[in-house]
Design a protein around this nucleic acid. Structure first.
Lengths: 161, 161
DNA sequence: TGTAATTCTCTTAGAAACTAAGCTAATTCC
DNA sequence: GGAATTAGCTTAGTTTCTAAGAGAATTACA
């Protein structure tokens, strides 16, 4: 049926647009949050990653962010100086430095204060969705996440300009 | 019922986590794409914005990105030099510079080549969703977008560290 | 109308973060 | 044991940002 397939196209196109907008705003909003705490977007990104993973070797962050090892040294040094991160030698391989997010209380409180309103509004937002709907959304986001990861891994690095 | 509300909590918590992960990957992926084309994340962001809006005064980009007017001058100069952007005086207010995305063919092709695989995989992904499901997802993303915008507007700028 | 205040972009100087290259120390591979 | 590799740090130089301010155009108001 030409009519129903036309409708689906519209739905898909709409979703695509909305998705892009959300993506862009996410980038900007993350940046703004980071600045509020007194961090660079890069520093914030690394920290956020560490909070999910626990201790990892410094080089891991370099691979993830696409930064050079030198840049990561700087990022970690700044985060450590600011009390957000701890470095310690890897007992299994003493060339390595394990980096770990540190729970700084003041910083924690500040972050919560920032995310507080967002969290409240978000809960209000999702209260209008049924369990089934939320699960559909979650599944979609999970699959999107996996897709991005897969493609990011494939992308060769062109490095400098 | 304690049991069903417990289940809902789990669903919400799960969605929250997935969402954060997608957000982070989006930031990183966008950055990677930008670098591939030979642009800074900032430059890419501005360009992407312009492609959606059409011509706007330079100061508009500054407000949107949170950069200073000086920084935007630099961004526009670099984008113009690279052929991605055109500047022209605003006939209605000659203090202003209207900036506009320029359709550079080579750059266009490059971007499509980059987004091509993503687009293909994405269409494959959504083929498993019904119209109704896609509409639920779209609505959720739209509402999220509106929420972010609202909160971003409220956030006062602390600027430097 | 004429003058002051404001608005908009650009310029400049200096600060901060990144790359590239090289270094040291530890590990792995013959 | 010795060579090659790996991990993170250091340094020099480049790029992008902020902060401050200048110039040009517009708006507000007596």
């Amino acid at each position: 049926m030409a009519l129903s397939s036309r409708k689906r196209e519209q739905i898909i196109e709409h979703l695509n647009q909305v998705q892009q907008q959300v993506g862009n705003r996410t980038v900007l909003f993350t940046h703004a949050i980071a600045n509020h705490i007194g961090l660079t977007a890069t520093e914030f990104e690394c920290l956020d990653f560490l909070q999910h993973t626990g201790p990892v070797p410094a080089g891991h962050l370099a691979k993830l962010t696409g930064l050079t090892s030198g840049a990561i040294s700087g990022v970690c040094a700044r985060l450590e100086r600011a009390g957000f991160l701890r470095r310690r030698a890897d007992p299994a391989d003493r060339r390595r430095t394990l980096v770990e997010a540190q729970e700084d209380e003041a910083a924690m409180a500040q972050t919560i204060a920032l995310y507080g309103p967002l969290s409240r509004e978000w809960h209000k937002l999702i209260s209008h969705y049924s369990n089934e709907e939320l699960q559909i959304i979650t599944r979609y986001l999970e699959e999107s996440h996996a897709l991005i990861d897969r493609l990011a891994g494939q992308m060769s690095r062109p490095k400098s300009r």
